[in-house]
Amino acid sequence: MEKITTIDSTAIPIMRDNIDTDILIPKQFLKNILKTGYGKNLFYDWRYEKPNKPNPDFILNKPERQGAEILISGENFGCGSSREHAVWALKDWGFRVVIAGGYSDIFYMNSTKNGLLAIILPKDEREFLAQAPADAKITVDLPNQEVRYAGKTFHFDIDPLWKHKFVNGLDDIGITMNYEQQIEDYEAKIPSFN
C-alpha cells in the first residue's frame, strides 16, 4: 500500500450528504476483474450528460479543478453497497484524501485497505475548506492529525492502528500472517457438532 504522510493539494468540494456507492461508481462498471481503470467513471451519472459527453458544469470536469487530491463532502459518505470499486475509483481518479462528516462503516474499512485517507471533520470546518479557491492548497498532515488552510488548523481523530498502516504503507495480510500460531490455536478449540 502507498504510504501517506503529508499531502499538499488543491481540493474539490461536493457537499451533498449521503453520497452512496452507486453514485460514486454505478454497477455497470463493476464487471471488471481488475482494481484499476475505474477513475474515468467516478460520479458517472453526474459527470456525463450521455456516454462520452462530459457535463461541463460538474466540478470534476472543470479544467481548473484537475489534479486535486482532496475531496470534501457531506454526511454519511459512501453509504450503500459494499463495492470496493468506489474506493478504487476515487483513488484511480487521483484522490488520496476524503474529508466528510462521516462514512458508512464498510466504506471506511475499504478506504483503510487502499491508502485512501478518510477524515471526519465537523460541518463548519468542512464548509470553510470548501470555500478554498480552485488553485488554493490545503495541507493534510497525518502524523500530526491536522488539516491546515488559510492560517487555520483543524485536528482530526484516527485509530492508531490505521494511522500506523497509512504512514508505513503496510499490507494487512502480511501483518496478520504474524498471528498464524494464535489462529491455529483458536481453530483447535472450535466446537464440532458432527
Binding site: 459494499s82 464498510i106 474499512m109 475499504n110 485497505k113 494487512d172 495480510i173 498471528y179
Partner: peptide, 23 residues
Amino acid sequence: AFGIGTSEVEHVLATQTIWQTKP
C-alpha cells in the same frame, strides 16, 4: 454477519480472520 470489501474478502480467504473494531 456483515458486508466487507474486496481487500477484506482476500484477507479472509488467506487468513480466515478479519480486523474489525467492535461496534
